[in-house]
Amino acid sequence: MSKEKSLKFLGIGIILVVIQSFFQEHEAFIAIYSKYVGYLTPLIYAFFITIFLDPVVSLIEEKFNMKRILAVISTIILVGFIIFIGIAIIVPQVGKSLRELYDKLPVMQEQIEKYATLGIDFLKEKNILTIGDAEIRESINSFIRDNMTSIQDFGLSAFWNIVWWGVALTKFFIGFFLAFLILIDKEYFIGFLRNIFSIIFGAEKSSATIDFLEKSRKILMSYIWGRIIVSTAVGFITFAVMFVTKTPYAVISGIMIGLGNMIPYIGSIVAGIIAVFLVALANPYKLIFLALAITIAQLVDGWIIGPKIVSETVGMRTFWIVLSVLIGGSLFGPVGMFFGVPIFGMLKLIYLKLLRKEEKQIDE
């Protein structure tokens, strides 16, 4: 057996051992990540910020014939301005809606208890419910009271999260500064990576590795921008229809459904269920307009914007997209659900490359 094949089998064996260990000792891996990899959080932020901003920097640099540092500064100012405008418009409206929602919690509790009672009475009339309804009603009411209390406690304990958010924001700004340095001198860092890969894999495989990373970057970047555009459109359409029809919680519902749409299929369903719950408690008759808003938004996503922007970027069938979301979510939560699709897209690149290599060997 050649040295190259031996190294390949050794690498595959190590990967399989790591994967097996991950599933067998999942909590231990999470603990290691939290303790050690957490120190690399600013670098991880820098990596994604660089990927996210690089197309904008390149566009400004070429379009206006700017120097690199001026293009980077202009991009940061532009992005900061857009974020500031979004916060200035959205945050006050969200705060107002949350205050209204908090004030209505007792009324919502009464509404839920009322609907639960009506449901039990209906089941009794149809002879579907044969066990004691008093115990069921008390259990439902206790569950509602306990959860309403938990919601109120969550609101009161928000203060203690300020410190955590402060630390997270500090890491983010450090990552932003590192991304600024990388964007200014990106050719140097690309050359540095190329040299590292040349030392490890050799000159020929280094070029193939860089080519794979570039294709992966395009998939990731296209997917992220595509989901942002699609989700923004879905959220805005939902908000617009609900606002015109004077449906309660238009702002919160639009934001939730827009953010939920960032996670294919599953996110939209969860966000839609929460929106239905809020509107049903405030004004059940407006549910028809909420359904209309969600239907229009999903039609635009599924038939107009989505296929043009997102589906073409990863080139995966619906089955694989849903599977990637489920696997990513089960392993890494919401972050895994979002990045599961582009990661599967990268795995598809490896699969196609290996398949072409095998077909070439067969032909020879």
Rank of each mutant, 00 (worst) to 15 (best):
G166D: 04
F212V: 05
G119D: 04
I174G: 01
T117Y: 10
S207M: 08
I136F: 08
S157C: 00
Q152L: 12
F192G: 02
I184N: 08
W225C: 00
T117I: 14
I210L: 13
D153S: 14
N195L: 08
K186Q: 08
M221E: 15
K124N: 13
V163P: 02
I229S: 01
G119H: 13
I228N: 04
I131M: 12
L169Y: 14
G191H: 06
S139Q: 14
I196C: 07
I228Y: 02
Y115M: 11
D185C: 00
F189Q: 05
S231R: 00
L220P: 01
G132D: 13
R217V: 04
A158E: 02
Q152N: 05
I199T: 14
K218Y: 12
M148L: 10
F122C: 03
A168P: 04
R145L: 15
F173A: 11
I112A: 07
M221D: 14
S157M: 07
Q152S: 06
S139W: 05
W160Q: 06
W165C: 06
I182P: 00
D185W: 05
A203N: 13
I184G: 03
S206G: 10
M148W: 11
M108T: 04
Y115Q: 14
S206D: 04
I144W: 03
L193E: 02
I219V: 12
Q111F: 11
R194M: 02
G119Q: 07
V234E: 00
